[in-house]
Each structure stands twice: as structure tokens, then as C-alpha cells.
């Protein structure tokens, strides 16, 4: 059916272009063709020339590309592994939090994700927060509440730099989103410290070699060694296991809505697909009488000559 319509359309288009051809002089046409040709050739030449020189940095400059890992939450409809988030929080708390803050996560955020209400409350109460001043205006302290944010290791940026030889440990709340390569990069970085830097690499004092870090010289030393934490669920705390867990936890920090987002996405896909199919059906149904319609012209017969 469409082919019939198509041919009809083609016919009318042909007749249109025939009439248009008469209006464009052959000289104008030649100029247009020439301009198109020159532009095309120039573009091809420029692209070819550009392809002859590689402007990419060396692997040492931009850091080794992290391999792609098969995260439990990688798939379109895969949720976070919440047991891993729970272990990862333990790693953050016992290892990373010595230097890195986690400013945007409050204790209440952990409730219903990796910890129970009572556990989160108990952890919050281990820290002291500023309270409102008393009647005499003296500052007071109070134990933490669920609504408080997880405290950082340093009072301010200057203190953090002073304690780390001038380098500022970045806040980890959004670090997975903030680094090119995301989870894969951070996992590769954490597990990628070689025992010795390769020959010829000169490191400034206080810095360490890591091939995945841009420039290769990173202030953070290797921190994850086998069995530095003891998991409560009995998972063997190998350094790669800890790196996987802490990266899962940090990914949750960056994107706590991931589970809900994927579930909503599944719903949207199902609903919109069915709406599309039903819309097609309804369109066909509504158009059927119009498409069937045929106008017939029966020319009047010429009067008979007697």
C-alpha cells in the first residue's frame, strides 16, 4: 500500500522538479555542484590530516585506563548489593575516614540501606556535635543524632592539608561521579599500587606511584592490605574484596537513588511500550474507514449522436 502511495508521491515530486529545473539556470547549478564538491573535498582533507597526528597524552600522563569490572549493580535492572554497601561502610569507617570526609551523608541516610535504625543511632551517638549554648551562653556539646552528618576527620581544609603534606584528601560523598571511569577507576586505583615504582620514575618525597592516577604520582599511599578490617559477616577481607565493598559504598553515596531509578525505569519502559503498541492499534482502527474510502468518477456518457 505504501509503495503505491510512494510511487504516487514520487511521480508528483518528479513533475515538481521538472518544473523547478526550468527556473534554475544550468550555470547556477554548476556553481552549486562545484561548491558542494569543494566543501566535501576540503573536509575530507582536513579530517585525514588530523588523523595523521595522535594528540593523545601518554599513558603516564593521563593515567592507565581502568579495566571494566562486572559490578553487581551494573546491569539495567540490577540493584546495589546492600551487603556490600554495609561492608564498604565498615571499610570507610575503619580505613578511609582517617583522612577523607563524607560531608553529604547523614547517619539517617544509612537507615534502611545498610544499617538498622538502632545501629545508625548508636554510631551517631559515638560522636559529639555542637549543641545550642546554655542559659549563660557557654557552648555545649551533645551526642550525635540521626539527623547529623557524618563528621570529617579534619576541622577545615587547612588542617587537612597540614596533616597530609600539602595534599587535600578529597571528600568522598560524590567521588565516584567526580572521577572519570567512576567505580572502575577507584577500584583500579585502590588495588593498583605496585610494590616498587618502575625503573626511571622519580617521585617527590611523600608521594607514591600508581599507574592509574594521572601523572602516576599520588599523595595517598596504599591503604588496603589483606585483613586490616574484620567483616562481621565473615567475608574474607582481602584487599580486593575491601576495595570492591568500599567502591560499592561510595557509589551508593554518589547515587543513592539508583535502586529506585532502575525500578522506575523498568515501569516506564513497560508502560510506554504498551502505550505505543495500543496507540498504533487505535490509529489503524480509527483510520480504517478513511483509508478505505474511494472516490469514483464516472464520466457522463456523451450524448448519443443520432
Amino acid at each position: 500500500m505504501f509503495s503505491r502511495f510512494g510511487s504516487a508521491f514520487k511521480n508528483s515530486a518528479r513533475s515538481f522538479s521538472t518544473s523547478a529545473k526550468a527556473e534554475i539556470s544550468s550555470n547556477t547549478k554548476r556553481v552549486i555542484n562545484g561548491a558542494v564538491g569543494v566543501a566535501g573535498l576540503t573536509a575530507a582533507f582536513v579530517l585525514y590530516e588530523d588523523s595523521q597526528t595522535a594528540k593523545a597524552m601518554t599513558a603516564a600522563e593521563h593515567g592507565l585506563h581502568a579495566p571494566e569490572y562486572d559490578w553487581p549493580h551494573k546491569g539495567m535492572f540490577d540493584s546495589y548489593d546492600h551487603a556490600s554497601i554495609r561492608r564498604g561502610f565498615q571499610v570507610y569507617r575503619e580505613v578511609c575516614s582517617a583522612c577523607h570526609s563524607l560531608d553529604r551523608i547523614a547517619w539517617r541516610n544509612l537507615v534502611g540501606v545498610s544499617h538498622t535504625n538502632a545501629e545508625a543511632k548508636a554510631m551517631a551517638e559515638e560522636y559529639e556535635y555542637d549543641d545550642e549554648p546554655d542559659d549563660q551562653g557557654n557552648p555545649r556539646k551533645r551526642p550525635g543524632k540521626l539527623t547529623d552528618y557524618i563528621p570529617g576527620p579534619y576541622a577545615n581544609e587547612e588542617a587537612a592539608r597540614a596533616a597530609n603534606g600539602g595534599a587535600l584528601p578529597p571528600d568522598l560523598s560524590l567521588v565516584v561521579k567526580a572521577r572519570h571511569g567512576g567505580c572502575d577507576y577507584i577500584f583500579a586505583l585502590l588495588t593498583g599500587y605496585p610494590d616498587d615504582p618502575p625503573a626511571g620514575v622519580v617521585l617527590a618525597p611523600g608521594s607514591n606511584y600508581n599507574p592509574y592516577f594521572p601523572g602516576g604520582s599520588i599523595a595517598m599511599a596504599r591503604t588496603l592490605f589483606d585483613d586490616i578490617v574484620e567483616y562481621e559477616d565473615g567475608t574474607p577481607a582481602s584487599s580486593s574484596q575491601m576495595a570492591k565493598d568500599v567502591v560499592t559504598f561510595l557509589d551508593w553515596c554518589s547515587e543513592p537513588e539508583l535502586d529506585d531509578r532502575k525500578k522506575l525505569g523498568a515501569k516506564a519502559i513497560i508502560i510506554l511500550t504498551s502505550l505505543y503498541l495500543m496507540a498504533v492499534w487505535t490509529k489503524k482502527f480509527k483510520w480504517a474507514p478513511i483509508k478505505h474510502r474511494k472516490i469514483v468518477f464516472n464520466p457522463p456518457k456523451p450524448p448519443k449522436k443520432n
Binding site: 540493584s79 545498610s114 535504625n117 545501629e119 535502586d259
Partner: peptide, 25 residues
């Protein structure tokens, strides 16, 4: 069903002393 074992409600069961506790918020 698809993410069985990974969700918080499954993980919660493995935590001692966290039975029927309410954890909304």
C-alpha cells in the same frame, strides 16, 4: 525476585538483633 539476596530486606535478616525493627526514613 531478580535482585534477591542483594536488597536491604534480605541483608537485614543476616544482621543479628535486627529482626522486626522499623526502619523508615
Amino acid at each position: 525476585a531478580r535482585n534477591k539476596g542483594k536488597l536491604w530486606k534480605d541483608v537485614k535478616l543476616t544482621i543479628p538483633g535486627a529482626g522486626e525493627e522499623e526502619d523508615d526514613e
